[in-house]
Amino acid sequence: MLEFAQETKAQLVRWMIHLRREPFNIAFNLLNPVILLIFMGGAFQGLAQGSVGGDYRTYLLPGILALTAFGNSMAGGIPLLFDKENGSLLRLMSTPISRASILVGRFLAVNINTTLQCVIILGLGFIFGVRIAAGLGGVLALLVIGLLLGFGVTVISLILAFVLKNHGDFFAIIGISALPATFLSSAFVPLDSLPLWMRLIAWVNPMTYMIDAMRSLILSGWDLPLLVRMAIVLLVFDGAMFWLGGRVLRRHLA
């Protein structure tokens, strides 16, 4: 157990050093959310006022937090793919470490990064006048909800890192997955205003539940039933991904 902590810590430290010395990686992932928050929030302010009932940036913030958490988690496996491609992963596996530490170390790093990015988005939102109705506790809750989505998506990304043969495929999947995942949810417009077929997809999209819960924290305060519903959906999603990940990754890390 102590050895597991030591080897996991070593790998986490490595990823944290990456984060500190390559801040552009964060900027890269934040680019789209920030553009959406600042420009889309500004551009559609007048247009959306009627349908969302209030400040559109405030309405948009949960969707943008979800996009940030999704994008960062989805990209989370990339460094492992690079390690796989350049031989470092094999070398790592020649050391007497538990295979799980490779996944746990990366998993922790990705989710620390996600939290950091969500804090940045919340800060930007604050600058643009977004206030959180649920207060400071609400801010913490928003970060936890971001992580609940991030957990499962990170596992998907780790699976892709080991299953995919090259990083080109990986980047393509990341590129095409984020926008549909957010658009097919209640991220940008109320569910009622989506066409039926989109609404049906949004209804099975965990992001919808996450965004609804976040939105209530931002707009109106603590809505316990909504939060419970969200927690159940996301925990089921996370559980399913962990189960799948355990099965797939055991084979690839034998």
């Binding site: 050895e3 030591q6 080897e7 810590k9 070593a10 790998q11 430290v13 490595r14 050093i17 990456h18 010395r21 390559e22 350049n86 031989g87 470092s88 094999l90 070398r91 790592l92 020649s94 050391t95 007497p96 470490i97």
Partner: peptide, 28 residues
Amino acid sequence: IGYVPQELTVDPYLTVEEHLRYYADLYH
């Protein structure tokens, strides 16, 4: 064993000393 593969496996972001700390922890 100490295994040094044919490819270079150093991490460009880490310093020399950080590499050795990293491996020291991996070898417990």
